[in-house]
Design a protein around this nucleic acid. Structure first.
Lengths: 141, 141
DNA sequence: CCATTTGATAAGGTAGCATTAATATAATGC
DNA sequence: GCATTATATTAATGCTACCTTATCAAATGG
């Protein structure tokens, strides 16, 4: 650092996120090398009943165009399908394929593993405290 | 979320970082709208005595080419200058201008403010715990 | 003193978004 | 029952923040 300070919590939040993410994305890459970190937003905000592109984009806080590209990829990879929305012929519903559903479950397994590793490292109490403090920061900042 | 879970700490780390960063970068933008978040890495890893491009890139974990562009920008904005390195005529030393030095100090003031806000929100003890837990995650992950 | 290494930089490419604009369908007011 | 306006998606294009490859000049080690 240009000035000598103990690292700011701001910087630590970033570093910690990067480390944990690395582990998660390594796990994901081992499952399917075509999937990139940006695709995670799709899985994260999907809905099993099917979801429209616009709503998916909104939940992920990006434009429908950007989300459209991610969905294009995952459709190509065989994880999603676009089916016509019966209630509105302009719209399409994005739904999981069998494989997409399996991939989602695998993804959560990878994340749950990492969460358990963190809990082991910090102790259940510390892990709970961390959860609460981060939630508090998110709520009030 | 596609499945209903309490948010993972992994996700919370990301969210918290984004919230805190927003505040920091809003503050920075208010000072100089030309400066972008990516320029922060330069200020963060600069050294007052002057530093070579290669070393700056190494510290920031990016290629010299990428760092070169950031330094180009900040040189244009008047915060940095490239001076010949007297010990090696291939090399240049990147040094702060007066304005760059002032900007660095302002930047740290903005961050320190945010850190104090977090400490206020969590209490000194909680803030210290957060600091230690994040450091622990970074060290052992 | 020449071969190799090192420092900077130029040219061109890619991922992950955004903005603007086109197209199709739907809903609404009169 | 149009004409207007709104909404869902997609296409074209652009920008930021990087990377890779290639070039050139200066330094260094046998």
């Amino acid at each position: 650092m240009a000035a000598t300070h103990p690292p700011h919590v701001h910087a630590l939040l970033y570093e910690a996120y990067l480390r944990v993410s690395d582990v998660v994305f390594e796990g994901a890459k081992a499952m399917d090398a075509r999937v990139r970190p940006s695709h995670a937003a799709v899985f994260f905000h999907m809905e099993h009943e099917g979801i429209r592109l616009g709503r998916l984009a909104e939940k992920a806080q990006m434009t429908p165009q950007a989300m459209g590209e991610l969905v294009d990829d995952l459709e190509e990879f065989g994880y999603l399908r676009r089916v016509p929305d019966p209630t509105d012929r302009r719209a399409k519903l994005i739904v999981f394929t069998e494989e997409g559903d399996a991939a989602l479950r695998t993804g959560y397994k990878i994340i749950d593993d990492v969460e358990r590793r963190m809990a082991g490292l910090l102790g259940e109490e510390g892990f709970g405290d961390l959860h609460r403090m981060l939630t508090r920061i998110i709520t009030y900042f």
